[in-house]
């Protein structure tokens, strides 16, 4: 294979992987944008999605994507429940309370999985695991392509929800100005519950798309995904879906190129290096903008 084919192949892999990272980041940025809460349990919800796919595969023989039928509504309701039972009670407390609460939720999820399922890595083998598709000499794995398609569908669905529906308008209004939203008749507490439900649901979907690619482990993996979600949102610029997509793709490409051309064992470090460089030179993110507030 010639050098440029390898480069194209790496870029394709990086973009597809980046799409899944974007999906992880979008949920975090949505929750932050509306609730001003940094959700430290976000990565653990991704891991929960991975285990959901493992569980439905073991019990019912489901393909990971088929398990979405159950995982999506359950993820949404779980998020709403967590918001109602935990975050809603401390909505008027100082912001570090919500931060600590989500950190606690993160520990609970990780350890609950460890206690019930055990610590050994789990994955789901799909029938198309080793299938690749060749486009002009560039081989792309079927699993990554399906993950990429799932990502596009999930993000497009979120965008349509935010911009084409009344509940989406209410979510954007609440993100812009909570008091203003309340005064036009929007129940902003209900919006917070819905938004946390959506954020959790997106994390679960990301987890399901990742399970054919990665082994799930209970405790440390959540923190790794939360960190990736931070990197994605900060790379792009906090607070918008478009920026999270861009940030995810940048992270995916940097990781894949670094692993391929430098040393593959430092894969995670390349993303973090890019993150630090961007923080140094463009603290508002690659595509972030400073917005004049009223």
């Amino acid at each position: 294979m010639t050098d440029w084919v390898i480069l194209l192949q790496n870029l394709a892999n990086g973009v597809l992987m980046g799409g899944v990272y974007a999906l992880v980041g979008v949920g975090l940025t949505l929750v932050f944008g509306v609730m001003r809460t940094i959700n430290f349990a976000h990565g653990d919800f991704v891991v929960l999605g991975m285990y959901a796919a493992v569980l439905f595969n073991a019990l019912l023989g489901f393909d990971p994507y088929l398990s979405l039928v159950i995982a999506v509504p359950v993820g949404f309701l779980t998020g709403m429940l967590v918001e109602r039972l935990v975050l809603a009670r401390i909505v008027d407390a100082p912001p570090e309370s919500a931060l600590l609460a989500t950190l606690g939720i993160s520990l609970i999820i990780g350890n609950a999985i460890l206690l019930t399922v055990g610590g050994e890595p789990r994955s789901v083998q799909v029938a198309y695991a080793s299938t690749t598709i060749s486009i002009g000499g560039v081989h792309v794995s079927m699993v990554l392509l399906v993950a990429g398609a799932a990502t596009v569908a999930a993000i497009a669905g979120l965008y349509a929800l935010l911009h084409r529906t009344e509940i989406g308008r209410a979510i954007r209004a609440t993100a812009e100005n909570r008091l203003g939203a309340e005064l036009v008749g929007i129940d902003t507490r209900a919006i917070h519950a819905i938004v946390f439900g959506l954020g959790t649901m997106l994390a679960v979907v990301a987890g399901v798309t990742l399970i054919p690619l990665l082994f799930a482990t209970p405790t440390n993996m959540g923190a790794v995904f939360t960190l990736k979600a931070f990197v994605v949102t900060v790379l792009g610029g906090l607070g918008s879906v478009g920026a999270a997509i861009a940030g995810g793709i940048v992270l995916g490409v940097v990781e894949v190129l670094g692993a391929s051309y430098l040393a593959s064992e430092y894969r995670e470090a390349y993303g973090l290096a890019a993150f630090l460089l961007i923080l140094l030179f463009r603290p508002e993110g690659l595509f972030g903008r400073t917005v004049k507030r009223v």
Partner: peptide, 12 residues
């Protein structure tokens, strides 16, 4: 209620 400080949605 037209609130003090207007409380608009500035980016919309």
């Amino acid at each position: 209620h037209v609130p003090m400080g207007r409380q608009l949605f500035p980016n919309l």
